[in-house]
């Protein structure tokens, strides 16, 4: 029983990281149709800046934590916006281009190369800024709770933003029909760049709060983008509620399989479950079927 509780809490926390990556993918996908494969790198970039600036980390920084939080979020937001602008530029000449596949992968590689140049290939160890709470005779980092709360807050904030503000409504319009939104006079490029910036902000916050439980290494970026992508697809691509549910479920599933059947079964069985879900509901658990023009 104790083990089940520990796995549940830790699984939800680790899955919340995938939720946040998935929601950042969704924000961009809804506004542009692009799946940004550089999201994993941007998450690690956030961890790197946290390492460099956080006062209790092993870096050289000495700023107050709130200043570091804002600075990290701002930097990753700007990097993501710049990357988004570069990604979207070649797509202006047509509505059905797939140049983004190359540009987002290229961006991922370039960001990774810059990180290796700056910090080297090592894994950065970020200190636990929040301490631990006792659970069933063990200690669990508060980071897991913090990252879970962040996932809920981001979900609610995005929902609120997209319903209460004109810009948010316009982003919603893009997600429903990009061409129609253009025809209606919406200036799509700034809005789409904004979606990259919002995704960057989500990853900035995630990298800061979750740095201790995320392996901050260039080589881990691929893991996070793939697992975030899996959560986004299972939850229903573009659906943040789906991501909010699928991430923790996925996280708990991975840990439960490791505990019951051994670590060797973790990835194969977890992926098998995902395949079954997609066979039963190809649009994802919370995904909606879209009418297609023919």
């Amino acid at each position: 029983m104790d083990e089940a509780v520990i796995i549940l809490i830790r699984g939800i926390g680790s899955g919340a990281v995938y939720t946040l990556v998935a929601m950042s993918l969704n924000v961009i996908y809804n506004a542009t149709g692009v799946l940004n494969f550089a999201q994993g790198q941007l998450l690690v970039v956030a961890g790197v800046f946290t390492y460099l600036w956080y006062p209790d980390s092993s870096g050289t920084g000495s700023l107050p934590w709130i200043a570091v939080l804002l600075a990290v979020t701002l930097v990753v937001t700007l990097v993501a916006a710049l990357q988004g602008w570069l990604t979207l530029l070649p797509m202006r000449s047509g509505s059905d281009q797939h140049s983004w596949i190359v540009t987002t992968i290229a961006a991922s590689i370039v960001i990774g190369a810059v990180m290796i140049f700056v910090i080297g290939p090592r894994t950065l160890a970020l200190k636990n800024p929040f301490g631990f709470f006792p659970l069933a005779g063990t200690q669990v980092p508060y980071v897991y709770l913090a990252i879970s709360v962040l996932a809920v807050v981001v979900h609610l904030a995005l929902r609120w933003f997209q319903r209460r503000y004109l810009v948010g409504l316009a982003l919603n319009a893009l997600s429903q029909d990009l061409d129609a939104a253009r025809t209606a006079g919406i200036s799509t490029l700034p809005l789409q760049v904004l979606s990259f910036a919002i995704a960057g902000a989500i990853l900035g916050l995630t990298g800061y709060l979750g740095g201790h439980v995320i392996g901050v290494a260039e080589s881990n970026a691929l893991h996070y983008v793939i697992f975030g992508f899996i959560v986004a697809v299972v939850g229903g691509l573009g659906n943040n509620t789906g991501a909010l549910v699928a991430g923790p479920v996925f996280g708990v599933l991975l840990m439960l399989v490791s505990f019951q059947l051994g670590g060797s079964a973790e990835i194969p069985l977890a992926l098998a479950v995902i395949v079954i879900v997609l066979m039963l509901r190809p649009e994802g658990i919370f995904g909606r079927l879209h009418a297609r023009r023919v």
Partner: peptide
Amino acid sequence: ATQEFKFPVTDLTPQLLTLKK
């Protein structure tokens, strides 16, 4: 008990819970 983990790993809790048990 025996356990295995995939590299890179960020949380070995499930494996260690099995072993501790």
